[in-house]
Amino acid sequence: MTDLDLSALWVSVQLATTTVLVLLLVGTPLAWWLAHTRSPFKPAVEALVALPIVLPPTVLGFYILIALGPHGPLGQLMQLNLAFTFTGLVIASAFYSMPFVIQPLQGAFEAAGKAPLEAAWSLRASQWDAFLTVISPIALRGYISAIVLGFAHTMGEFGVVLMVGGSIPGQTRVLSTTVFEHVEAMEYGQAHALSAFLLIFSFVVLLTVYILNRRFPIHAS
């Protein structure tokens, strides 16, 4: 790998890590709400969360680009241009990878149900205490799936990155866009190397998820 390739790998890893952290912080309460709400808005919110799965990345990237730009709502709010920056890329990736974090968490919270929570409350645990000591461990598999899938999906994104981040070396050029650049420049050897790396990485990540799911079965009651 060239220095440029390595810097792209580094940007990719930073982006995926930051995106997953942001999504866990924002996604946990949202997934909890979705798992337990009886609100009539639940299906609408679920559909919104799932939207990035079906939407072409260019469409999602286009809207985020508009929103982040100096004249967009987010750009106006923060008084700066987030388009073509790393921060803008994190925001875009968070939307793009949202379903891959929220859905496993929601599933895990639904599977855990209210029963262990009520038991913890009756044993004097506060809401936070009960969530941290009872629900989180029971939902551990959901968290592992959410982290691994969110990370891997962010590593593999291309369309949204290109729309929102451009491909600025060291800032917004990530692995997937680097492959594209190599192919554009007819550097097939380097494209091969990077592609093989992403292929093997993705396989290993998914394999890890499935092995962990077998290793840590949660025994319900």
Partner: peptide
């Protein structure tokens, strides 16, 4: 949480972890 009660449910609801 603040009531001095002990509650036993129909199912044991032990914490599996």
């Amino acid at each position: 949480q603040t009531r001095p009660i002990g509650y036993v449910f129909q199912e044991p609801r032990l914490f599996p972890h």
